[in-house]
């Protein structure tokens, strides 16, 4: 409805408020070294029931093999690429792994009902807020970190930033925004009934972050 557009823009252009200064680019440097960033990240993540573990870089498949079966978690979702191949190669026999390797449209029911956990990589971690940064991709699509009841996220210890502002500045996001970018800070939660926190409403009920060192 182009007339609506013209009318709205016309009204807005007809009245220009007094100039307001362009705000400075927001920065909040904290002076945290990598170790401090990792411990702050873990504290924040744990405060919202995110599980965190520091794991040697190549040991994460072994961690999964060791930790998930006792919890009764067997049906995994993997994408494509290095993370997926590594788990596919090392996964213990009791796991059934589904590959997210074709468009979701004809297997939504499977994704929503027949998957216990997913494993994805992450782009970075933000220490101050305890957030994972995800850029879903064709290899690790958007629903992977959202629909399974447990999301296991691999976070490179060398990819910690103090906060979102620091990351945006360091990596020039504005020139290369992906289809979807996410900050994820814990498992899904709500406080809509009596302001009482309850976890696991629509997204993952549990989030495990394996910090790879």
């Amino acid at each position: 409805m182009s007339s609506a557009r013209d009318n709205i823009l016309g009204r807005l252009r007809a009245n220009r408020p007094h100039a307001a200064p362009t705000p400075p680019v927001y920065a909040k440097p904290l002076g945290w070294d990598r170790e401090r960033c990792i411990t702050e990240f873990m504290t924040r993540m744990q405060a919202v029931r995110g599980e965190t573990h520091r794991v040697a870089r190549d040991d994460w498949p072994a961690w999964i093999n060791r930790e998930l079966p006792p919890r009764g978690i067997h049906r995994g979702l993997i994408g494509r690429g290095a993370v997926a191949e590594k788990l596919a190669a090392a996964a213990a026999d009791e796991f059934t792994l589904t590959r997210y390797d074709h468009a979701i449209d004809d297997w939504k029911g499977v994704l929503f009902r027949d998957i216990d956990f997913s494993v994805t990589g992450t782009l970075a971690g933000l220490a101050e807020s305890g957030s994972l940064v995800l850029w879903p991709s064709p290899d690790e699509p958007r629903l992977m970190s959202l629909v399974p009841p447990l999301h296991i996220a691999l976070l490179d210890a060398g990819r910690m930033f103090e906060n979102f502002a620091a990351l945006l500045a360091a990596e020039n996001w504005s020139a290369r925004m992906p289809t979807n970018a996410l900050l994820v800070s814990g498992p899904s939660k709500t406080a809509d009934i009596e302001q009482t926190l309850a976890y696991g409403i629509h997204g993952p009920k549990a989030l495990i972050v394996l910090i790879l060192e």
Binding site: G130, A181, L183, V184
Partner: peptide
Amino acid sequence: QPITTYFNMISRPRQ
């Protein structure tokens, strides 16, 4: 909360 669980930035439809 210091941040909500999800901050979702959408720039494109499915590519």
